[in-house]
Design a protein around this nucleic acid. Structure first.
Lengths: 345, 345
DNA sequence: ATCAGAAATGTTACCGGTAACATTGCTGGT
DNA sequence: ACCAGCAATGTTACCGGTAACATTTCTGAT
C-alpha cells in the first residue's frame, strides 16, 4: 500500500480511503490511485483490515455433510446471498458428529466470524457454551430446537412427520411401519419418530412396528438389507414410512428384486425429497424440504442482522420454512390429492 | 491475551508460545496458562496471527457448482485432508462462469490463501494474470489444461471420451450420435466432443450426428427434450453418447415414455457417473470419475507443497486421476466386459 | 563454588491495514 | 479582503498476535 501511496504522491490513508470508496476522496485523486492500483496489481490484505475494523467478513457455516445434495444446495444458496453483501463462507462439515462439531466451532471462532450458522441435530454442552460466549449471532438450521441458542431457520421434523402420518392414515393405511436408526437420541430421526407415534396414537393405531436399524444417517444399503428380509420386518404391513429417502430407496429396490409390487402390495414413503426419490421407479412419495430456501432465508436473516438500520427487536427469532407432502407413485392415490409431475420436471 | 498473561503472571509472549505449544515453555507454566485459557474461554484471534506470520491457513477452493454431488464430494474429501494439517477452505462457486471466477479469485486473494484450487474449464485472461502474480501455488482440477497455470490434478476429458467411443465401437456400435452443448468453447464438453470425433474418425465412421443443444452444463431437461423428438435427432442411430449423465438420464426417460427399448432399440451412454445414472432403470453406462479421489489427491499435493522437508523439484506437476468405463444396463453387453454390480452397491 | 551452555522467559518492533483526530485547501457570503 | 465551514488529505496510534533478539534462570561438569 505504501508503494501505491508513493506512486500517487499521497498518504497511505488516502489510498485506503480510495480503495474502500468511502466518498471522502476527490474524484481525480481516486482515479489516479485506482489506475496505479491496477498497474501494480495491488490486492489489499484483508486480515490486516479485519484486525483494525474488527469485522472479519466471515460467516462460519457448518453442515452435516456435503455428500448430500440437500446440504450442498443450501450452502450454495446461502453463499449467493452472502456474496451480495461481501461476506465469505467458512465451511466445515460435522459428519453428523457432535464432537467434530465442537472442534469445528472452536477453530472457526479463531477467525472471528460475524455470524455462525450450523445445523441443529443436538450440540455438546461445550459447543453451546462456546457459541454463547462468542458474542456473535448464532443461526441454527433445519430443525427448530426445543431450546435454541439463537436464531433458527427451519421446520419441525416432528410436525412434518405427524402431517405425513396423518395423510397416510387418511389414505386408508392402517398398519404402518416406521423405519429409523438405532441410537438417534436428539437427532432429527428421533423427532420424526415422535411425530409418527403421535399421529398413530391419536388415530388409535398400533405403533408396534418401529424398526430400528443402522446408525445415523441411514443409508440406501441399510434400507436394502431391511427390505431383503421382508418376512421378518414387514409381514402384514401396508405401508413403510422411512426416516429418509435413502433407506426408502433401498427398501424399494429390495422389494423390486423380490417381485413385491409397490404400491399395490405395499406402499413406501420417505422423507427429504432427495434426488433419488424423484428418479426411482416407482417414484417415492416423500416429505419435501426446500434446501435452497433454507439457505436463502438464512442469508436474508444475516443481512438483516448485520445491517445497522434495523433494530434487533424487529428481527424474528425463528423463520419457518415449511415442508409439503409430495405424492408420487409409491403410494396409492386414494383421495386424488395433489400429485407431482413427471420425474423430469 | 493480556488478561491471560496477567492471570498467569507471565508475559504475553509466553502465553503465545504456550498456545502454539512450540516446546519452549516449561511444562508447569504451560499447564497453568492452559488452565487459565480454559477458564477465561480465551480464543486467539487468527487474523492477528496471520498478519504477523504471513501464513493465513487458508486454501482458496473454487468449484463450478455445489449443486452437483461430484464437486461437493471432492470438496469434502479435500477438506478432510486439509483439516489434518490445520488448513481451512475458503469456498466459492463459479456457476460455470469465467467472469464470476475472475471476481472470486480476486476476492479470495485478499485473504492471502496459501494455495489456490480451482477447476479448469477455461479462465479469463485476467484470472490467469491474477493467479500468476499471486505468487502462490495454483492447482487446477478435473481437466488437464493444455497450458496449465500451475499444478494439475485430474484427467484428460478428451482421452476419456476417446476411450469410451473406442469401446462402443468395439461393442459393435457404428452409428453413434454425440450430444453436447452449444457454445462450449474451451469447456470440458468441447474436449469430450473432440475425443469422440477422434475415435470415430480413426475407425472410419461418420461423425455427422453431432447434436448441439442447450448451454453448459446440460440438464436432464435438455436431454428429455432431445429424446422426445426422437425421429428428428436419433433416427437410424444405434447409440447415443451424451456429454454428461444428466442429459443421458433425460434422453432415457423420454425414450421410455415413447416405448423405445434401451438397450435393445438404442443404447444410451453418459459421462461422469452421477448418482442418477446408477439409479436409473435401465442403469446408464458411463465414464466413471472418482470425485473424492480428486479431492484427496489435491489435499495430498497441498500437504507436500506446504511441507518444508521436500524439495519443490520432487513434486510432480500433474497428478493423474484416471477414469474407468462403467458398463451397465443401457448398453448391450456384446463382449462380456466388466459390469457393475447392483445399483445399491 | 564456578561457569559454560541450554532452557525458559521477557522486550521490542513489526505485520498491513483503519479509526480518530489534526491539518490544510478551498468555497462562497458579507 | 476576510472568515466560517466544509471538503480533502495527513498524522498518529492501535488492532492482536509473533519474529527476532535480549535477558534471566536453571543445569551439570569441573
Amino acid at each position: 500500500m505504501e508503494d501505491v501511496a508513493q506512486a500517487a504522491g499521497v498518504s497511505r490513508m488516502t489510498v485506503s480511503r480510495a480503495l474502500r470508496n468511502d466518498g471522502s476522496v476527490s474524484v481525480a485523486t481516486r482515479a489516479r490511485i485506482m489506475k496505479i492500483v491496477a498497474k501494480l496489481n495491488y490486492v489489499p490484505d484483508q486480515s490486516a483490515g479485519t484486525l483494525s475494523t474488527r469485522r472479519s467478513g466471515f460467516v462460519a457455516t457448518l453442515v452435516p455433510s456435503l455428500n448430500n445434495l440437500h446440504f450442498a444446495e443450501s450452502v450454495q444458496a446461502l453463499n449467493v446471498e452472502l456474496e451480495a453483501i461481501g461476506l465469505q463462507i467458512l465451511l466445515g462439515h460435522t459428519a453428523y458428529s457432535t464432537e467434530r462439531e465442537e472442534n469445528l466451532v472452536e477453530s472457526m471462532l479463531k477467525r472471528r466470524p460475524e455470524v455462525i450458522v450450523l445445523p441443529f441435530d443436538g450440540h455438546s454442552r461445550r459447543t453451546v457454551k462456546l457459541l454463547k460466549q462468542a458474542n456473535v449471532p448464532v443461526i441454527e438450521q433445519w430443525e427448530r430446537p426445543q431450546r435454541p441458542v439463537g436464531y433458527t431457520v427451519g421446520f419441525s421434523n416432528r410436525d412434518a412427520s405427524r402431517q405425513m402420518t396423518e395423510a397416510l392414515i387418511a389414505k386408508g393405511y392402517r398398519k404402518i411401519a416406521f423405519v429409523s436408526e438405532i441410537e438417534d437420541a436428539w437427532t432429527r430421526g428421533a423427532a420424526r419418530r415422535a411425530g409418527f407415534e403421535e399421529a398413530m396414537q391419536a388415530a388409535g393405531l398400533s405403533t408396534r412396528q418401529m424398526i430400528r436399524y443402522g446408525s445415523p444417517p441411514m443409508s440406501i444399503e441399510d434400507g436394502y438389507q431391511l427390505g431383503s428380509d421382508f418376512k421378518k420386518y414387514f409381514n402384514d404391513i401396508e405401508c413403510i414410512f422411512c426416516v429418509s429417502d435413502a433407506p426408502a430407496f433401498g427398501v424399494l429396490s429390495a422389494l423390486k428384486v423380490q417381485g413385491i409390487q409397490v404400491p399395490d402390495d405395499i406402499a413406501v414413503v420417505g422423507f427429504g425429497n432427495f434426488e433419488v426419490s424423484r428418479f426411482a421407479s416407482p417414484s417415492i412419495s416423500t416429505v419435501e424440504v426446500d434446501p435452497a430456501r433454507i439457505g436463502r432465508e438464512t442469508g436474508r436473516l444475516i443481512r438483516r442482522l448485520l445491517s445497522d438500520d434495523e433494530s434487533p427487536d424487529d428481527i424474528p427469532g425463528h423463520i419457518a420454512v415449511d415442508v409439503r407432502l409430495s405424492w408420487r407413485e409409491s403410494t396409492r392415490n386414494a383421495d386424488a390429492a395433489q400429485t407431482d409431475t413427471e420425474p423430469d420436471a
